[in-house]
């Protein structure tokens, strides 16, 4: 479904990402793990069109989408839940969701809004509240629901558990599990490598801007050279 080949992205003089190869099949849940500064966010940003790659290509369902704008990619079915959630704090919860569904027709949007209300009751309960007043867990739910409003075929998430207390981290991983059981295609960047590998079909390990390993959870866990990626593992 998604095919990334030899993708390179630079910030000024620094290559944050070098020759990255990656693929995601339909219905797969794929994790991107690795230490901070490894280029995970850069990789997602380059796929989603927030950053323009210096070299390489990204294809989605056989179409070359390298360097396309995020708004175009969303219409093709690629959505990203950005790092730090990036909720529109001054807009109400419902307005946030509506923005998520801006590409849908009016009727469809209303239907999706209803669907999200069923799936995330807390969002329905607080639909007229300014989103800036939501708690960390609630706003993460809103961020994911907002992305789902566009009916994406590929949903990418950047650090969905970042800054959340462990209780709420559980909630996020349960949500990923649910989406997975619905057959959605997910590409998730996570610090929490141990937890990520429990829910992912496969994962890629990035380090210093390069993809250094790829495989299923058990394969990756057994590689001694990747030990430091998992050591400690915030998994309480």
């Amino acid at each position: 479904m998604l095919e990334v080949s030899r993708l390179t992205t630079r910030y000024g003089a620094i290559s944050a990402l070098r020759d990255a190869d990656l693929h995601v099949g339909s219905g797969e849940v794929v994790g991107l793990i690795g230490p901070n500064g490894a280029g995970k966010t850069t990789l997602l940003g380059s796929i989603a069109g927030l950053l323009s790659p210096a070299a390489g290509s990204v294809t989605f369902d056989g179409t070359d989408i390298t360097g396309n704008s995020p708004e175009k990619l969303l219409r093709l079915g690629v959505a990203l839940v950005p790092e730090h959630r990036r909720i529109f704090g001054d807009l109400t919860v419902e307005e946030n969701l509506k923005i998520g569904g801006i590409t849908q027709s009016r009727d469809e949007r209303a239907e999706l809004l209803h669907e999200m209300g069923d799936r995330f009751p807390v969002l329905r309960e607080k639909r007229t509240v300014a989103a800036g007043y939501l708690s960390g867990g609630e706003s993460q739910q809103l961020a994911i629901a907002r992305a789902l409003m566009s009916k994406p075929r590929l949903l990418m998430m950047d650090e969905p558990s970042l800054g959340l207390a462990p209780v709420l981290v559980d909630v996020v991983f349960e949500l990923i599990e649910t989406l997975r059981s619905q057959g959605r295609t997910l590409l998730v960047v996570e610090q929490n490598a141990t937890r990520m590998l429990e829910v992912a079909d496969r994962a890629y390990v990035l380090r210093s801007g390069e993809v250094v390993a790829e495989g299923t959870g058990s394969e990756l866990r057994e590689r001694p050279d990747l030990f430091d990626t998992f050591v400690g593992g915030n998994g309480q």
């Binding site: 901070n36 970042l162 800054g163 610090q191 430091d228």
Partner: peptide, 8 residues
């Protein structure tokens, strides 16, 4: 250490 790995 926000966003850092455990080693870092």
């Amino acid at each position: 250490t926000s966003g850092m790995s455990d080693t870092e």
